[in-house]
Design a protein around this nucleic acid. Structure first.
Lengths: 227, 227
DNA sequence: CGGCATGTTGACCATGTGGTCAGGTTGTTT
DNA sequence: AAACAACCTGACCACATGGTCAACATGCCG
């Protein structure tokens, strides 16, 4: 009567009337989402494949069938997050307006933390552990990214468009301030006494950061630019 | 001939000519330091008593003999860190100078992160995991701490001593910016290409943060106060 | 239908986990 | 010396870990 041996996930998929090839894609997505959450909360060692499988609603064996190994799954998640990261503020030039660029930088970084809080925490946990999987990325791509932007900031300072601050510390300031709301969400919610931050809250925080950081660096907002 | 059964730690202690009661104290200190490092890097679940014992140079049984349980050890470490935290910026008043207070705030928070990077990371890992052991502290003591300081910031704004910024976001900004250099040390070192941050680096960063944040909030340094 | 790739999973394995405990050594007091 | 508490630790336990595998189900092609 009841189809005892029908795989749970496939059965569920079929009940929703999904097309053939969509199952794999859906399962993978669900596994990646579950894994991101577990790895973010407990770090690489603290996460167990069993816990990921339960969060994804699949047997442990199935998770390993799709992902090969715990390590492979973790690396894949890190790479996904680095790709999102790399899409940020891809091209800026010395001729751009500092105020606009810095505002866009803060906004897009804040949006990334808000859209992918688990990914952000996953990254944080990896760094806390000493970045065993990300050494190369940090010392290579990311370092170059920072230096390129830093060079532009410096030229802006020379042109008198902003104070002569050390660009690297400025970038770290923006990173930390924005990342804080994803990584330390539990602290933020506990102290503010809320269940979650609304879009309005986030907009208010973003505006605060833009205002304080731009003013703090002596960057004049575009509307007040000398004509 | 050789005293086979003499406990390793005790033997070592005696070789250094330590007094009687000092051994326990020394072992406890060593265990706490080792545990802080391991918990900070791998979180509560990811840390193993075995790893802590090895880092402390003691048998696992000995660690459990001193600390009772993994959980008890973890809680003890958290409490030690919260005590350090609570000692910060204990009493400020509306009549204090905003510039001096904010500078002292940033300086002392930066010093805490620098003096106890492992404790700082331990705290970060606990928050990343959703603060399972610190809910009470966050919603109680720490929240009250923030609200008290916030009230003073607000009065300063009313008196025109600083811009009317939301105090909570300002406190989070200072926390995140300072904590960053402990929690994300691996990232900072990777990007700057150094082995460690020197005292001079830290002083430079501290000065940068003080300058940008005070200016960003419209706080006039004491030397330039209207007379 | 038959055949083959793909998907699915319970049972299993070696290893690691937190924690207990018996049996020992040491330090202190008498 | 004797007695007692404190200290120390290897051996052990029940359980969880990441990963393998054989057995089976299914999807798709002819």
């Amino acid at each position: 009567m009841t189809e005892v041996a029908s795989p749970a996930a496939t059965r569920r998929a079929r009940e929703r009337g999904e097309a053939g090839g969509a199952t794999r894609e859906r399962n993978e997505r669900e596994i990646l989402a579950a894994a991101e959450k577990i790895f973010a909360a407990h770090g690489y060692r603290g996460a167990s494949v069993q816990a990921i499988a339960e969060a994804a609603g699949l047997p442990k064996s199935n998770v390993l069938y799709y992902m090969g190994s715990k390590r492979g799954l973790y690396v894949r998640l890190l790479e996904r997050m680095m790709a999102r990261w790399n899409a940020l503020l891809d091209d800026i030039s010395v001729d751009d307006d500092p105020a606009e660029v810095l505002e866009a930088f803060i906004r897009s970084k804040m949006a990334l933390s808000r859209r992918h809080p688990e990914g952000s925490r996953l990254f944080a946990a990896e760094i806390l552990a000493g970045a065993p999987f990300l050494q190369e990325f940090l010392r290579g791509e990311l370092r170059a990214w920072v230096e390129e932007r830093g060079a532009i900031f410096r030229q802006w300072a020379e042109r008198g468009l902003m104070d002569p601050v050390e660009p690297v510390w400025l970038i770290f300031l923006i990173w930390s301030a924005t990342q804080h709301y994803a990584d330390f969400e539990a602290q933020v919610l506990g102290i503010t006494g809320r269940d979650e931050l609304s879009d309005a809250d986030v907009e208010q925080i973003t505006a605060f950061l833009i205002r304080v950081i731009l003013k703090g660096c002596g960057v004049t907002p575009p509307s007040a630019a000398p004509g």
